[in-house]
């Protein structure tokens, strides 16, 4: 029995910057597109907005469409072998929310120039709630992949040990394989991952209402809060030898300059709610 391939979640930005397509084994074994974060895509699931549909007036009926997410657009081709998708595309209003489950495809018109596209298996009209949830899920899973790739980049392990470590950190067998391949194939990954994170953060910001200002920005602003808060904040930096500060130590040190334990707790609470420090482990504090 052949098991169904998982449907990966990637943003268009990442999908379109992927150019590592491979096929191993006999002709019946699946093709994979490996993305920079190691997603090993045979099948993918997209929810976005149709922004363009063209009937390519070729010999056979063929539709080309673009389905967009906040980071870019996927190109979709549907022809005579995808009759249901083709029929739906032929009568589609632009724009409309839709979901697509499909197979990753590539087209290489000349050496080194690879275009990615999706051949739909199932295509449905949907709504903005489902699209929003997809953005959230895709951001979440992409971020997890990014963190795993960073771990892999910092390690010096051989392939098998690396895969085992990635699985230990929660990667699926396929993802561990994909990451091991991606870090060898793609150059300048560190820089790319930074770009991708910024792109994903901007995608997530589209989910927030326009007049909504989360405390995100506050984090960087300084010169807020009381003097005590500032002293505690400064102490945290001085005492931190790289692994955070023990709360007990912070209380001790503050005692020497006349700050009570209650005041320390109060300041820590303020600093945390302002997003200036966090508690990586219980009773350990660290500046953001």
């Amino acid at each position: 029995m052949i098991e169904r391939e998982v449907a990966w979640r990637v943003f268009a930005y990442e999908f379109n910057s992927s150019n590592y397509f491979f096929h191993e084994g006999d002709e019946r074994s699946p093709n994979y597109l490996v993305t920079p974060t190691g997603a090993m895509i045979n099948r993918l699931y997209i929810v976005g907005v149709f922004t363009e549909v063209d009937n390519l007036q070729s010999e056979e009926e063929m539709f080309k469409a673009r389905i967009s997410d906040p980071t870019g657009a996927f190109t979709i081709y549907a022809g005579q072998y995808q009759p249901e998708a083709a029929i739906l595309l032929s009568g589609l209003d632009i724009p409309s929310f839709a979901s697509v489950t499909g197979k990753a495809r590539t087209y290489e018109p000349e050496k080194g120039k690879i275009y990615t596209s999706v051949r739909p298996e199932e295509l449905y009209i949907t709504n903005s709630n489902i699209r929003d949830k997809w953005i959230l899920d895709t951001a979440h899973l992409s971020f997890e992949r990014i963190q795993l790739v960073r771990r892999a980049l910092h390690s010096t392990m051989n392939d098998e040990d690396l895969k085992a470590m990635l699985i230990q950190y929660g990667a699926s067998v396929e993802l561990a394989d994909g990451i091991t391949r991606a870090i060898k194939y793609y150059s300048d990954l560190d820089k790319y991952l930074d770009e991708l994170i910024t792109v994903i953060i901007n995608a997530l910001k589209t989910l927030l209402p326009e007049d909504f200002h989360p405390d995100i920005e506050k984090k960087t602003s300084k010169n807020e809060g009381s003097d005590t808060d500032r002293i505690i904040y400064e102490l945290m930096k001085q005492l931190d030898k790289g692994k955070g500060v023990q709360l007990a130590q912070l209380v001790d040190e503050s005692g020497h300059i006349g700050i009570t334990e209650e005041q320390v707790h109060e300041s820590v609470k303020n600093l945390m709610s302002e997003g200036k420090c966090y508690e990586p482990r219980i009773d350990i504090l660290r500046r953001v």
């Binding site: 959230l136 951001a139 927030l208 997003g275």
Partner: peptide, 15 residues
């Protein structure tokens, strides 16, 4: 989605 997006943005900025 709004709350979840906020949390995730913070985590990512932190990283």
């Amino acid at each position: 989605t709004i709350t979840k997006a906020c949390t995730l943005i913070q985590e990512m900025q932190h990283s």
